[in-house]
Nucleic acid binder design. Structure first.
Lengths: 335, 335
DNA sequence: CCACAGCAGCGAACCGGTTCGCTGATCAAC
DNA sequence: GTTGATCAGCGAACCGGTTCGCTGCTGTGG
């Protein structure tokens, strides 16, 4: 309700002085500042975001661009959105949700309407088309995900390669010489999903180093299909008895498939996985695992974006958050 | 980049004429309009959201206030956020996420900073404190949830009472005379959660009408605790063999508990439940059930809010979205 | 005692739109 | 031919902040 003019009148000073107090950009004597503060409190004044945005050409808002993703695990999404919003608030920013199926269009509109100061892109893929309008307008942005080529944009992600290596090491250390590698659907790798590919190639590489034979199995889409596929994998006597999983649906469904076949962990099968932290919050997942770190990743992303906004020309940054492996006894030690 | 002044110059008209074309509020001859449209296209102009907000005192943004506890325990949340954002965009609004632990403070700040035109409150409880600043500032809002007293604010929610009645009917129709009612933790009811209480009292009432004896069991918090509690319930020979569930954690965990005890559905137990639609998308939930309708609920909420913003003094509305029961053969017909 | 530096606060201009009263042109009626 | 109504478009004022050059006062040094 109250405007800066009301505050000025109440405090007996000029509008510009009030502004100086509010922004802190100019020295104001303690006495005047006290008068202004009192007036602000009395009138319950707070700055009009739109007016300030117009004057400063800073909206203090970040656009969070959610990719279009039917197939992916959306329960995890909420954790990221909340973590992003919390981190943004801490830096004085608010978060605008951009969920348009056509992410490029969403970005374009937000830019030309000057709705945000920068973007955080979720579900990044290699050669992400959303980068085009962003780079063209020279807008600040941070990728949540680590494509091969970040095209001059800051990026942060979980270190899926490190996670994969940890899990492979864990199996190898326990004496395993071979393992089934339960992967995401093939399409995800083909579509250039950054994390899936980084995990897979790191797992392959480390497994080779450690002399662990990997039998890769791409799983289908859809809960029932996954369950059936898991059963098939578990039933095949040719398959190794250790399982390395990077597929949230499979992690969630595995207990059912084990149940179907009367198998026990770790007696009959050894299991390690990397999955969304959210999964473990709802289910008993007693698998030794590496969990995603939504809070750490999001906090880093927002900090990087805030810095990028402040200094657009500082060198491009890439940050990988190293996760922790939590042993839960789902791996049998073999001779 | 381009401002309305650039467009005016390019088109050879005044700024106000460009504005008339953009807003459509005033008649402009087809020829001038064509010139303006051409200039807009050529300069890739689109209005500066902040400037328009300042001039019109309409931000065209909606604040979505996410409750605190929700953050910890709702895989369904993402579905609601996306559905809200999609619906908002359809009405020309954008969505600002307000996730502050202290929801009241978040609302207060958004109001005094004029950041949004109205609010959508998630995870509403009876006597919700967030309504105080909203009502005091006479701000438009819509509740996603249906408290006893909506305090003059529009509200929309799934018709949990109807859902409960459907499920009770389904059991009674199949000849059951008694059922265990697996409920949320007691605290949820005590904290004034609107949907939990509406479901519970409707179930109780309908069960009485249909001569179905209900044995209520409030479940604990935490996956392992839930699993153990479920086992205890299933093991007790005194308990009825039919299960009426309103507790997402229990729905997700029940297959594990059944597995623990070697029980089959529907041979050993009949199961019906009401749960988040998200749950069924990820897991094999072959329980006869009523699912939440995030898209329908969110669309209605945004439409109601848009109307409320347009006409603040129209009569208060309450809408309940009636869900569908989907039979999946998890109920045994008894004599 | 005067000159000048330093400093707190003022005021005007500006950010990019919208709104509304007014102008000048066109045209019909008398 | 003059009057009056109609209408497209113009221009100034305004929304609520920020910014920056300027003013007038205080105080120090010569």
């Amino acid at each position: 309700m109250a405007t800066i003019g009301d505050v000025a009148r109440e405090a007996g000073v000029s509008r510009s002085t009030v502004s100086s107090v509010l922004t802190g950009r100019k020295y104001v004597s303690p006495e005047t500042r006290a008068k202004v503060d009192a007036a602000v409190a009395k009138l319950q004044f707070s700055v009009n975001a739109g007016a300030r945005a117009l004057a400063t050409s800073r909206t203090m808002a970040l656009g969070v661009v959610v990719g279009f993703h039917e197939a992916e695990f959306s329960p995890a999404l909420a954790a990221y959105l909340i973590a992003l919003s919390d981190a943004a608030r801490e830096q004085g920013y608010s978060v605008v949700l951009l969920t348009e199926p056509d992410g490029v269009e969403a970005v374009r509109r937000a830019i030309s309407g000057r709705q945000v100061d920068g973007f955080i892109l979720l579900n990044v893929v290699d050669d992400d088309p959303r980068l085009e309008p962003i780079n063209q307008a020279r807008y600040p942005a941070v990728l949540l995900g680590m494509p091969q080529d970040t095209r001059g944009v800051d990026a942060v992600d979980l270190d899926f390669a490190a996670g994969a290596a940890m899990l492979v090491d864990h199996l190898a250390d326990a004496g395993h010489r071979e393992a089934v590698f339960l992967k995401w659907p093939e399409e995800l790798y083909d579509s250039g999903s950054t994390y899936a590919n980084r995990f897979a190639s790191s797992a392959r590489e480390r497994a080779e180093q450690r002399g662990l034979r990997l039998v890769p199995v791409a799983l289908p889409v859809g809960p029932e299909q996954v369950r059936a596929a898991l059963r098939a994998v578990l039933q095949d006597p040719e398959n190794p008895r250790a399982l390395l999983i990077h597929n949230d649906a499979a992690v969630a469904m595995l207990p059912f498939a084990l149940y179907d076949l009367g198998l026990e962990v770790p007696a009959d099968r050894s299991v390690v996985s990397l999955h969304a932290a959210e999964l473990a919050r709802l289910y008993v997942l007693s698998f030794t695992s590496v969990e995603s770190e939504p809070v750490a990743v999001c906090q880093t992303a927002v900090e990087m974006l805030a810095k990028r906004i402040a200094s657009p020309d500082s060198p491009v940054q890439k940050r990988l958050i190293v996760p922790r492996l939590e042993a839960k006894g789902s791996v049998e030690t073999v001779a």
